[in-house]
């Protein structure tokens, strides 16, 4: 059986058209991502990271080139994909529980068996006792967890996460990184994580892809391996290789404002 990558991007260009002109967002991007791989994407802001995720999700069509999911072009909105946007966009008129059920409602999957799974997720992420709360009653970290569970509830094979931890304070971020990486790894999900935090990328991923300034191109592609094997992000930050990877990526990024060393 031939090896088919989970996500394959072939020579993709994306240009945004507006009345004022066009923006060349992504140029000649080719990538292939294995099943179960945890890939981080880093790059200066405005380089097209969010665009790349929208492209993979199928919400955005490439100007040229193609995207293949499991070797096939995605049909409409693929139910294999879960896409977590840059902000939580919780519906303030729905309770935590109803927010989480949103995707299942849309996909007509809110059956009894699925509800059990949602209950488990709520307990796993410490949100069970908050399930009847409204979003404005939650802290930033809790809102982000709700958004994550909403994405996980539909049981996607591929997760697209757009800076999911960016708005959180440092402690909450470290905790959530740990939780999320462990849970997703155990479930063998394919994950594409966009972040501007190099240490987060190095700590969580099997692979880090650096995108250049606009128009975005793949500038570097690092395989992250630890002698001690796959560890939880909190542990990897202490591993001897961590600093090394961090510095290499820092150099590739070649910028002066974004991502301060913090690990």
């Amino acid at each position: 059986m031939a090896f088919i990558p989970k996500v394959q991007i072939e020579k993709v260009n994306i240009k945004y058209q507006t009345l004022d002109g066009e923006t060349n967002a992504l140029e000649d991007i080719s990538l292939s991502i294995r099943e179960g791989e945890f890939v981080s994407i880093v790059g200066p802001s405005g380089c097209g990271k969010s665009t790349l995720l929208s492209l993979i999700s199928g919400l955005l069509k490439p100007t040229s080139g193609q995207v293949l999911i499991d070797g096939k072009p995605p049909q409409g909105s693929s139910q294999k994909l879960g896409y977590m946007l840059q902000q939580d966009y919780l519906f303030e008129w729905r309770t935590v529980y109803k927010n989480i059920m949103l995707g299942l409602e849309i996909q007509g999957k809110n059956k009894h068996s699925v509800k059990n799974k949602v209950h488990n997720l709520l307990k796993q992420y410490g949100l069970w006792s908050f399930r009847h709360y409204y979003p404005h009653q939650l802290s930033g970290g809790m809102r982000q967890r709700v958004a994550l569970i909403r994405t996980l509830a539909v049981d996607p094979e591929i997760l697209l996460l757009d800076e999911p931890f960016a708005a959180l304070d440092y402690q909450t971020r470290l905790t959530l990184e740990d939780e999320v990486a462990t849970i997703l790894k155990r479930a063998n999900k394919t994950v594409i994580l966009v972040t501007h935090d190099i240490s987060e990328a190095v700590a969580m991923s099997d692979r880090v892809i650096v995108i250049s300034k606009r128009p975005g191109r793949v500038k570097a592609d690092f395989k992250i391996e630890y002698a001690a094997g796959r560890l939880a992000p909190f542990e990897t930050r202490k591993a001897p290789e961590f600093r090394n990877y961090f510095n290499c990526i820092w150099k590739e990024l070649d910028i002066h404002v974004e991502g301060t060393p913090s690990g």
Binding site: Q79, G82, L85, Y89
Partner: peptide, 14 residues
């Protein structure tokens, strides 16, 4: 209505 909320629900295939 926030277009991002619409984008969000479209990610589920609405």
């Amino acid at each position: 209505v926030d277009p991002n909320k619409i984008k969000l629900i479209r990610t589920f295939g609405a």
